Amino acid sequence: MKDQPEGIDASGVRQALLAWGIDAVDLGYAPVGFGDYHWTADDAAGRRWFVTLSDLADKNHCGMGADAAWQGLRRAMDTAAQLRDRDGLGFEDGGFVLAPAATADGESVRRLGERYALSVFPYVAGRSGDFGQHLTPEERARTLRTLAALHAVRPPVVTRVIPPELSARERLEANLAAVDRPWSGGPWSEPARETVVRHAAGLRGRLDAFDALRVDVAGRGAALVVTHGEPHPGNLLWHEGRQLLLDWDTVGLAVPERDLWLVAEGPDDLARYEELAGRKPDPSALALYRLRWDLEDVDAFLGWFRSPHAATPDLEQAWNGFLDTVRRLAA
C-alpha cells in the first residue's frame, strides 16, 4: 500500500520485530503491493528482512472479522512454513516457497493488538511483476511447473479448506440492494452507488452464473490440492534464474483451477499442466474461479467505498479497479 496504516508507526514495528530477535538499525516503509503494508528492516548483523503488516479487518479471504481472519492468516503462514520445513520447498533449499521467519517462540505470524498481524520474511532481491501483467510463454511454462509441484504436495494438517463460495456473500448482496438511498463515507461513495445502479442487471446476472457454476463444479467431486490462491505476476519473484512464490496468506485446499485460471492463457498451457500433473483442467472450474475473483473484488471495493475514506492514491487505484471490474462483469 502507498498509504501507511492507522495506529501503527515505525517505532511500533521496530518494537514488534524484537520478537524475531531483529534489532532494526534501519527501517524504511516500502510502498509496494496492494492490501498489506510493508517495510524493509536491516539489523546490526547486516541481514535484511521484508516485514508485512496485515489489517485483519480487511482480510476477508482469511475469515470474516478480525478474530476469524487472525486464525485463518495464522494457518496460512503455518502452511507456508511447513511446506518449507517438512517438504523442503523453501527458497533456502532451492525451492519456490518464500515462507515467514519464526519468532523466538516459534510463531509464523504475531498479532499486534486487535486489528493487525505482523509477519517477517527474509529479504530476497529479484524481479517481480504486477497483477495483470502478461507472462511470456516460457514464464507461464515455468509457473505451471511450480504449480504442478505445489498441487502434488501432501496437504499439511493445518491447511484450511477454501470453499468456492464468496467469502462475504451476504455483505455483497446487501450492498447491491442498498442503492435506493445515498451512500456516504467519502468521495467515491456516491459514484460507486451510481455505478452499481447502472450495471445492476449485469451484476445480478453474473451472481446467478456464479451460483450455477458452483453447483456444477461441486457435483463433480474433484480432489482438493494445496493451492496458492493468487499466483499472478505480482506474487512471482525471479531470483538468480529461479522462480519464487510470494504472499502465502491465500494458501488453502481447493481444486487446482483456483490457481490455473490466473496463469493459463490457452489450450497449450492447459495441456502442459495436464502433462505435468496428470489431471485435465476443468473448463467449468476455470470459469468459476475467474468469476469468483471479480465478484470478490467488487465486494471488497464496495466495502471500502461505503466506509469512511479520503482521496488517497490507494483509493484512487481501487476506484479504477472497481470500474474495470464492474464493466467486465456487466459486459
Rank of each mutant, 00 (worst) to 15 (best):
M1W: 02
D3P: 00
I8S: 04
I8G: 07
A10N: 11
A16F: 14
L18F: 12
I22R: 02
D26N: 13
L27K: 02
P31I: 08
D36W: 01
Y37E: 02
D42S: 15
G46P: 01
G46N: 07
F50A: 00
F50K: 03
V51Q: 08
H61A: 05
C62W: 03
G63N: 09
G65K: 11
G65V: 08
A66K: 13
L73K: 05
R75G: 05
A76C: 10
A76R: 04
D78C: 08
L83G: 07
R84C: 04
D85L: 10
D87V: 05
D87I: 03
L89V: 03
F91E: 12
F91W: 14
F91N: 08
E92F: 00
E92N: 14
A101F: 08
A101R: 15
A101M: 11
A101L: 15
T103M: 10
D105W: 09
S108Y: 13
R111G: 11
G113E: 09
G113T: 07
E114P: 04
Y116Q: 05
V120K: 08
V120G: 04
F121D: 02
P122T: 00
R127P: 01
S128C: 01
S128R: 08
G129M: 03
G129T: 01
Q133R: 02
A141Y: 00
L144G: 05
T146K: 12
L147Y: 10
P156E: 06
V158S: 04
P164Q: 12
L166I: 07
A168F: 05
E170L: 15
E170G: 12
R171V: 15
L172K: 13
L176H: 04
L176N: 05
V179H: 03
D180T: 14
D180E: 14
R181E: 09
P182T: 13
G186V: 06
E194A: 14
V196P: 03
A201G: 11
G202R: 09
L203S: 11
R206T: 08
L207S: 08
L207E: 10
L207W: 08
A212P: 09
A218G: 10
G219M: 13
A222S: 15
A223I: 07
T227A: 09
E230V: 12
P233V: 05
P233L: 08
G234N: 05
L236G: 04
L237K: 14
W238H: 10
R242F: 01
R242N: 12
L244K: 07
L253R: 03
P267I: 01
D269V: 01
Y273C: 02
E274K: 08
P283L: 11
A287Y: 08
Y289M: 12
R290I: 04
R292I: 05
D297M: 15
W304P: 00
W304A: 12
P308Q: 10
L315H: 13
L315A: 06
A318W: 03
F322H: 03
D324G: 15
D324S: 12
V326E: 03
V326I: 01
A330Y: 06
A331V: 06
